[in-house]
């Protein structure tokens, strides 16, 4: 199973719920406003860093670019993927749970 989060962690609890209800090892993909959780030096950076010990975290590149964010703005250890990479992740992990 792969989890996706598309809401800003500064506005909604989607990321928190995702972290609470995902088992260790399942990947998390941040997309749309969810990509904001991947940026460095924010009030949620510590939480996201801690989550990385339990989950591989991916972020969707086109949504970063659209919001004026570059790879350099992204916290260490988070992998940027394009749409093709998104599809590969879903194919690899099967079931998707979307935290809307």
């Amino acid at each position: 199973m792969i989890h996706t989060v598309n809401k800003s962690p500064f506005e909604r609890n989607s990321l928190d719920s995702c972290l609470r209800l995902s088992i260790k090892g399942s990947p998390i993909l941040l997309l749309e406003d969810g990509v904001l959780a991947a940026t460095k030096g924010t009030s949620v950076s510590e939480k996201v860093a801690a989550a990385q010990s339990d989950h591989p975290i991916f972020v969707l590149g086109p949504d970063l670019q659209a919001r004026g964010l570059a790879e350099g703005d992204i916290a260490e250890g988070i992998t940027v993927v394009d749409y093709g990479g998104f599809v590969d992740l879903v194919v690899e992990h099967g079931t998707v749970q979307s935290w809307l």
Binding site: R20, L21, S22, S26, T95, Q97
Partner: peptide, 18 residues
């Protein structure tokens, strides 16, 4: 509790959420 629910969720084939 959430840790047990996380395991149940991980065993599903199709998840529909809202």
């Amino acid at each position: 509790p959430s840790d047990k629910l996380a395991v149940i969720m991980s065993e599903q084939e199709i998840v529909i959420s809202g």
